[in-house]
Structures are given as structure tokens and as C-alpha cells.
């Protein structure tokens, strides 16, 4: 299902936060329609890599090309960001807007859609993520799982080519994880290109076309989910998985 044309290209990307060398030469290509799941211990640079793809962090050296546009000129950043949806660990919904307004605001401001058009798209997406009745609720009135689903709908409303998920389920109660993962699975089945930082094994095995294990700012190992989980080659991968899988 993956075509040959890569939509995300990282070439030897380095990123430092003061003395911390967060990314040490990451090179990665993601093809259209691929679902890449990234795992690794905390502090291994998974989230930093994701945020670099969206230019929420600027890289110190190396190149990032998203959808054929190199991320080095300021003019390109907003253009690229509109094509790349991002879902955060802590949802980051706008608390002063209702669920519907959360989804329509960027459509109107960035995509210059009319109010009616934006609302129609928002209602359609709320239907898709399974909470059409929560359109007029404020974020604090929603459960964590519902908030995360609104956040996914908000990102999808921009009709992005790529979706980035930064640990979308790790701030959720166990009973709410499934409802979010179901939405993500649907997306993967529809052929959305996704990069997911997550330790959800079920999701990885069901949806991932490729898994990446990162440690200390480097990509240690990649392969199919079954290879990584049940037949890891690298010592560090084995050590990490022995702690994660019970």
C-alpha cells in the first residue's frame, strides 16, 4: 500500500537543547500512506523528532523535507504546517472555545473557509470520531478520550496529508484509550500517512507498516511490528522491550 514517493524526508538531523544532544543524526524517509510507529525510552528524542517535522522545534543541522517542501524558509513553515496535522499528548484543546469552534477556527482563519462550510466539515468530523452530540460542549466538559478525539478532528479539519501523533493515549485512563485508538485505526485504514509515537502494542500490530525503535537520539532499529516485538536484533531494543512487555 505504500507508494514509492516519500512525503517526509529527514537527512542527518541534529538538535541540541543546551548541553543535551536530543537528536544525533536522524535520517528517515516516510512514504505516502505509511503508518510509522515510534517507540523508545523517555528522553530518547521521539517527541523531538515529531516536533521537528512540524517545525515546532528548529533543527541545528540537517535537512527536513515535507511533501517536497524543504523546511528552511519562514514562508514555507505555515504552508507545511497546514498540511501536517498534529495531535498532542495533553490534547491542547482551546479551553475558551466549544468543541465545534475548536474545529472551525483554523479552517476559517487559515483555510479561509466560510462559516457554514467550516461548520459542515466540523460536524462531519465529529460524527466520524463518534461524538456528534458534543459539538457545543466546552473541553472541560468532555472526558479525556473525548477531548483527544476532538483534537484529532481539529487536525483532520485542515485536510492534512500527514498526521503526527505525540503519545496520544498516554494521558488517558485505560478505559478511554480504546476509543481513541479506534479512531486512529480507522484513519490508518483510510490510507492516511501517520507517524505515531506510542507504546500501544495492539495498535502497532494492527496498523503499523513499520516500527522504529529510538534511543539516545538515534534510530537503533526498524522493521515490521512483529519483527521488533518478537524478534528484536539489537541489545538495547531487547532491554527496552523486556521492561515494556510483561
Amino acid at each position: 500500500m505504500a507508494s514509492e514517493q516519500p512525503v517526509i524526508v529527514l537527512e542527518n538531523v541534529h538538535k541540541r537543547f543546551g548541553n543535551v544532544h536530543a537528536l544525533r543524526g536522524i535520517s528517515l524517509e516516510v512514504a505516502l500512506g505509511e503508518v510509522v510507529v515510534v517507540i523508545g525510552p523517555s528522553g530518547s528524542g521521539k517527541s523531538t523528532m515529531l516536533r521537528c517535522i512540524n517545525h515546532l522545534e528548529t533543527v541545528d543541522s540537517g535537512r527536513i523535507i515535507v511533501d517536497g517542501i524543504p523546511l528552511d524558509k519562514a514562508q514555507n513553515i505555515n504552508k507545511v504546517r497546514a498540511e501536517v496535522g498534529m495531535v498532542f499528548q495533553l490534547f491542547n484543546l482551546f479551553p475558551h472555545l466549544t468543541a465545534l469552534e475548536n474545529i472551525t477556527l483554523a479552517q476559517r482563519v487559515v483555510r479561509k473557509r466560510s462559516e457554514e462550510q467550516a461548520v459542515a466539515i466540523a460536524r462531519e468530523l465529529l460524527e466520524k470520531v463518534g461524538i456528534p452530540d458534543k459539538a457545543d460542549s466546552y473541553p472541560h466538559q468532555l472526558s479525556g478520550g473525548q477531548q483527544q478525539r476532538v483534537a484529532i478532528a481539529r487536525a483532520l479539519a485542515m485536510q492534512p496529508k500527514i498526521m503526527l501523533f505525540d503519545e496520544p493515549t498516554s494521558a488517558l485512563d485505560p478505559e478511554m484509550i480504546k476509543e481513541v485508538l479506534d479512531v486512529m485505526l480507522d484513519l490508518a485504514r483510510e490510507g492516511m500517512t501517520m507517524v505515531v509515537v506510542s507504546h500501544e502494542i495492539g495498535f502497532a500490530r494492527a496498523a503499523a507498516t513499520r516500527m522504529i525503535f529510538m534511543d539516545e537520539g538515534q534510530i537503533i532499529e526498524q522493521g515490521s511490528p512483529d519483527e521488533i516485538y518478537f524478534n528484536p536484533k539489537h541489545e538495547r531494543t531487547k532491554l527496552f522491550l523486556s521492561k515494556v512487555l510483561h
Binding site: 505555515n78 504546517r81 482551546f94 483554523a106 482563519v109 485542515m158
Partner: peptide
């Protein structure tokens, strides 16, 4: 206002001033 608000707004393609006006300042 938590940094995530600005990041969420920017990740949707809003410019800095748009994010300021629609997301940060109202809060």
C-alpha cells in the same frame, strides 16, 4: 497560558499573530 496552546495553534497553520489574537489573548 500553557505553551501547548501556542503550539497547537501553530501546528494548525496559524501565524504567530493569528495564534496570539484568536487563542492566546482571549485566554
Amino acid at each position: 497560558i500553557p505553551r501547548g496552546q501556542m503550539e497547537a495553534a501553530r501546528s494548525l497553520g496559524m501565524s504567530y499573530m493569528q495564534a496570539m489574537r484568536y487563542i492566546i489573548l482571549p485566554q
